[in-house]
Each structure stands twice: as structure tokens, then as C-alpha cells.
Amino acid sequence: MLTSKAAKRYAKAFFSLAQDKGKLDEVRADFNALAQLAAQSEELKSFLSSPLVAQDKRLELLKSLFEGKIGATAMSFITFLNEKDRTPVLAEVCEYFEVFCNEAANVQLVTITSAQELSSTQIKAIEVKLEAKLNKTIKASTEIDAALLGGFKIAIGDQVIDHSITAQLNSLKQSIVNA
């Protein structure tokens, strides 16, 4: 969940700057890697958000961690965030960056949840339908949830299209109870 207003502002600024410099793809890859790292490493997260670490010490550590591994543009963004004492929202900035990239490329992320694993042709079929419906390029990720019993559930941002057996059983139950 993305809740920080500051992260959104920084991400927007970084995004337009990267776009102007023509380094969008490079920064995007770097930021994605960073977001993944932050999601996996509790240590990194607590280090970034700890107010006990002094700014210059943090810069040193950040440099030793990332210098050379990520592009110069991304590194300069991180240095800037550190200067403004906004490293706690670094992970969110990275995520927002991805959101802006997708928006610019007219890409819609969707999550398809199903009871059983879907074949690639099935996923493709859903994607094609959604693309026609939303007029956007669809990037689907899949999840398995046995509680659905059968069918599938598509989450497009806040919108949910529920075609699962559980949902239908629930509405059948409702219609019998209310009858």
C-alpha cells in the first residue's frame, strides 16, 4: 500500500527528471531492484528509517552498498533523498516510480487470483479480453487461493471482477436468506 504523500512527490520529480534525461529504463530497473531488496531485507529497512544514524554516516553506508551496482542517475536520487532526510520513504518512492512508469506507458497491472494454477493460454485469454475492455496494455501477475474453490478473481487496482465459485455461493446464500 502506498500512503506517503512525500514519496509520491519525490517519485514524480525523479520520474520527470529521468524522462528528460532519457534514462527512464535504466532508473526504473535500478529502482525495481531497490524496492525488491527493501522488501526482502528487514535490516535495510530499519537502517533507512532509523533516525539514530547520522546523515553523513548514512551516505557513506549507502555509497558502499550501492555505488557501482546501480546507475549514476539512481545513485544521485538516493543521495538527494538522504540529504533531505527522506530515506525512510525510499522503498515507497521506488514503488511510486514504477506506478508512474506504468501510467506513462499505458500499462495496467492486474492480479489474477485462482483456485488452481491457470495455464498460460488461459492467462493470455484473460489478458486479451481485459486489454480490449480497458484499452491498456495488461501486465498480469497470478496468485493461487484455494479458498475460491473454482473460477477466478481479477483485481484491477481497486476494481475487482469476481468470478469465483465462493462469491457465487455467497450470493446464492444471500438470495435464499433474504427471500
Binding site: 500500500m1 500512503t3 483485481a155 481497486d158 476494481q159 475487482v160 471482477i161 469476481d162 468470478h163 462469491a167 457465487q168 450470493s171 446464492l172 438470495s175 435464499i176 427471500a179
Partner: peptide, 19 residues
């Protein structure tokens, strides 16, 4: 009778998450 009248179909709704 109830089953016959029951129409199954995809339900679409908008969701959020409790913060």
C-alpha cells in the same frame, strides 16, 4: 425455484484495504 431464479455471473465491485 430459488435456484432457477438465481443468476450467476461475475460480480464487479470496488475495494479498499483497512489501514
Amino acid at each position: 425455484e430459488q435456484f432457477a431464479a438465481f443468476e450467476s455471473g461475475a460480480q464487479t465491485y470496488e475495494t479498499g484495504k483497512v489501514l
